[in-house]
């Protein structure tokens, strides 16, 4: 059974109120969810809060999940990122320690190259590889959008680029990723 099918079966059980299945989903995805939250928040306590909130949303909103609308991991990652950005923005409002526009312009996709990573799940490796293939001029604005939730205009200020250039580069980055992943699927890389 594929990982996606495992997730689908577990999520179907969660939808029947099976908290043991939720525990299994946590065991499969908790580590990556925590890593994503930590990448956004840079704080273990906040990352824990974000992951807890994400799983709470999975549990309370389980009836709204439709397997036909895509892979569980894509749905779940979106939830984890959203809850993490909620906390990130809330923390910014609370502390006012930094100007959001000027903060962390160096955040980027600084992950090991695929051949340096022992990862049995090649789908994850493919995403990582596709990101690593992006030129810095595309990956930097994308990283600020993804990990900081910064708007086009905020990114334009942070990177000192024209607003139109930021929009174009973020769209180009996403389209390049789509193309890379699509090509990888077509040639049977799995």
């Amino acid at each position: 059974m594929t990982n996606a099918a495992d997730d689908a079966e577990l999520m179907a059980r969660v939808q029947r109120g099976d908290d043991v299945a939720l525990a299994s989903l946590y065991d499969r995805h908790g580590g990556r969810a925590y890593a994503l939250a930590f990448a956004i928040l840079s704080n273990s306590h906040d990352a824990e809060d974000a992951v807890a909130r994400a799983f709470a949303q999975v549990w309370s909103g389980r009836d709204r999940y439709e397997a036909s609308q895509g892979a569980f991991v894509a749905w779940f990652n979106t939830i984890v990122r959203s809850r993490s950005l909620d906390l990130y923005r809330s923390r910014q409002r609370r502390t006012r320690a930094h100007d959001a526009v000027g903060e962390d312009p160096e955040v980027n996709w600084q992950f090991p190259a695929p051949d340096e990573v022992v990862d049995r799940d090649r789908a994850r490796g493919r995403v990582r590889e596709a990101l690593n293939q992006l030129p810095a001029e595309l990956s930097r604005p994308l990283a600020l959008a993804y990990f900081r939730g910064m708007s086009h205009s905020e990114i334009a200020v942070a990177l000192e680029l024209p607003l139109g250039t930021v929009k174009t580069r973020i769209r180009a980055a996403m389209r390049d990723l789509r193309s890379s992943l699509e090509n990888a699927a077509e040639v049977g890389v799995s």
């Binding site: 990556r32 925590y34 890593a35 930590f38 895509g70 990652n77 992950f111 090991p112 993804y146 992943l181």
Partner: peptide, 12 residues
Amino acid sequence: GLLGEAVPALTP
């Protein structure tokens, strides 16, 4: 939705 998969897992 898949970009989060690129982040190497941590032990929570």
